[in-house]
Simulated assay, not measured.
Amino acid sequence: MARTIAEIQNEILKEKENYPSLAKLTESKTAIWRLWINIMATAIWIHEKIVEKNALVSRPHTLNWYREQALNFHYGIPPLVWQNGSYQFDTTGLTESEIEDSKIVKHCAVSEIDLETVLKPGVEPEEIFSDYFHNKVGVVFIKVATVKDEKISRIDVPNELFAFKEYIAKIKDAGNQVYISSDQGDILKLTLNVYIDPLSIYINPKDIEYYQSRISNGASTQDIITPLAPYQLDPLNGSLISNSQAFPVLDAINDHLKNIEFNGAFVKTYLVDAVQKAQGVKIPILAKVQTGPATNPSDQPNPSLPDVTKIEYFIPKAGYFDLDTLDVEVNYIPYTFYRDKQ
């Protein structure tokens, strides 16, 4: 921020004290040398204001700049105005609450694909070379989401997303391609084998053999249970003995997934670490991970999710997981190594 004229004058007067030859100058406020200081301070102030404005106008539009502008989008606020070298929303007369409520974009991630990642030495291109430039290289990808009921959610009001796209089209750099998406959270299904302390976590003894059979067969509930022979597990399995409302493993998984930043990576090791810290858990094993983008239920009611267990980490396509559709299957096994045969 440019200094004021008074600040510049004070700095010149302070510097004057360092020169003994200037000590004999009269201290009269109307002295000619004070007039020259005022003229110089004014000239320097004008110069700094020009530099400041040029710096603002010529600010490089980095990926972080696009993210900053997206989070500053106001829906329903009067049209953009050109002010001080950039487009801005005029929020005059609005309360802080009204301004905050108009910011519908609560989460945003911006990325791009550089040419180096496309041109892989020794690998034959799978697409026409020009397609890389038209569809990938030189495109700024913007993922956005809002918050509903304290959960990350896609912007599903058509006009809101349309208005946001128009806003970005107006402020973006000329010639840049921008691809904007706001999708429903990815589907995630997890299967875990968890050895628990039977003194802390409840497990019905009659269900232990069933859990062990699922582990040994590498099958899921859907694979074993049939409509003709359903097996009903005790719904309290996995709860704390001291509090039947608490399910340490499931709670740890949900808390971990909620805390993954928008467009952040799901890391298998981090999830296992989170479950390991849960009360009563001895050995957590993440046996299977399945995930995929959300689909239209009318098109595919039971989508077949790709198995990504062998991948250590990945980023959900939508930037987040839909926790309402989260499917977690846990096989609880008592940790009784001290009674095993040596």
Rank of each mutant, 00 (worst) to 15 (best):
A2P: 11
A2G: 00
Q9S: 14
L13Y: 15
E15W: 09
P20F: 07
L25S: 01
I32V: 14
R34N: 14
I37M: 09
N38P: 06
N38V: 10
H47A: 12
I50G: 06
E52S: 01
V57I: 07
V57P: 00
S58N: 15
T62L: 07
L63Q: 15
L63H: 15
Q69F: 03
V81N: 06
G85V: 00
S86Y: 02
F89P: 00
T91M: 15
T95N: 06
E96F: 07
S97N: 13
K103N: 08
H107K: 14
C108P: 04
E112P: 11
L115W: 08
G122D: 11
P125F: 04
I128N: 14
F129Q: 05
Y132A: 07
H134P: 01
K136M: 15
V137Q: 05
R154F: 12
R154L: 06
R154I: 01
E160Q: 09
E160G: 02
K165P: 00
Y167C: 06
I168P: 00
D173G: 02
Q177G: 10
Y179M: 01
I180L: 08
D186L: 05
T191E: 12
N193M: 00
S200A: 10
I201C: 03
N204A: 11
K206Q: 03
I215M: 06
Q222S: 15
Q222N: 12
T226M: 07
A229S: 14
Q232H: 13
S239N: 08
S244D: 13
P248M: 04
L250T: 10
E261M: 06
L271C: 11
D273I: 13
A274M: 10
Q279I: 14
L286A: 03
L286D: 05
L286T: 01
G292W: 09
A294G: 07
N296A: 08
P297T: 05
S298G: 02
P301Q: 13
P303L: 03
S304L: 10
P306T: 05
F314M: 06
P316E: 06
K317L: 03
Y320K: 04
F321R: 09
E329I: 09
N331T: 13
N331S: 13
I333T: 08
Y335F: 10
